[in-house]
Amino acid sequence: MRRRNLFALTAVLLVLLVLSVVTQVWILPSEVRSVVAVFPEVNPIAIAIACWQVAAVIGFKLVHLARDHGLDASNYGWIQAMIGCILAFIVLVLAAFITLNIMGYTPPGVMLGLIGGGILAMIAAGSLALFLGTRPLARQYWKS
């Protein structure tokens, strides 16, 4: 991977991580307090944001590993951890979607956000799983 691409990827990951931290530390607590007063089931939203933050930190680690000596089979555990975080996010989004439908609270902004976030997470998890499945090193690594 070229240095310029690695720098751009690192910058994007850093911006996403900072935005999610700002959201979780300043914006989310005030919004969650007001919504939890009416709908106590939505409290786990903070966990969903934490899943994305963990995935971003793992992404930083992988970018630095790729920059230093490339990705090999020994780094695939990090990718699996990232897939696990994204799958946890998908489960939380699905639970929130079902709960909000049962409760009858389905404003378009919330539902479109849940659907969009879930679709993006499924694309990310699928892409990472496809990456792992198509690499010959991955198959050799897991056989030993």
Rank of each mutant, 00 (worst) to 15 (best):
V110D: 11
G118F: 03
F39T: 03
G126A: 03
A81L: 11
Y105S: 09
T106R: 15
F39P: 07
L9P: 00
L130E: 08
L130P: 01
N75W: 03
C51Y: 00
A129P: 04
R3I: 12
M1W: 14
A96E: 13
N75V: 02
G109A: 12
S74D: 11
G70K: 03
V42H: 01
H64Y: 15
S74L: 06
Q53G: 00
G59S: 07
S30I: 15
V93M: 09
T99W: 06
E41V: 04
S20G: 03
A56E: 09
I90K: 04
A81K: 11
A8F: 11
G116I: 05
A125Q: 01
R67A: 12
I90N: 04
G59E: 02
G116C: 06
F7G: 05
N5G: 06
V63C: 14
L19Y: 02
A8V: 12
A50P: 01
Q80I: 04
G118A: 05
R139S: 11
L130T: 08
Y105P: 02
S30P: 00
G113N: 10
L112C: 10
Y76S: 06
T106A: 15
K143S: 09
W26P: 00
I79F: 00
T99Y: 07
L65P: 01
L13S: 11
G84D: 12
G84Q: 10
M82S: 14
G116T: 10
L14T: 13
H69Y: 03
F60Q: 03
K61P: 07
S34E: 15
V32P: 00
H69F: 00
N5E: 13
F131G: 01
G113M: 08
A121W: 00
C85S: 14
C85P: 02
L62H: 02
I83D: 01
S74E: 12
L16G: 15
P108C: 10
G77Y: 03
V36D: 10
G104N: 08
I83Q: 02
K61L: 13
Q24G: 05
S20R: 06
F7S: 10
V38W: 13
Q140H: 08
Q140N: 05
G113T: 12
L114W: 09
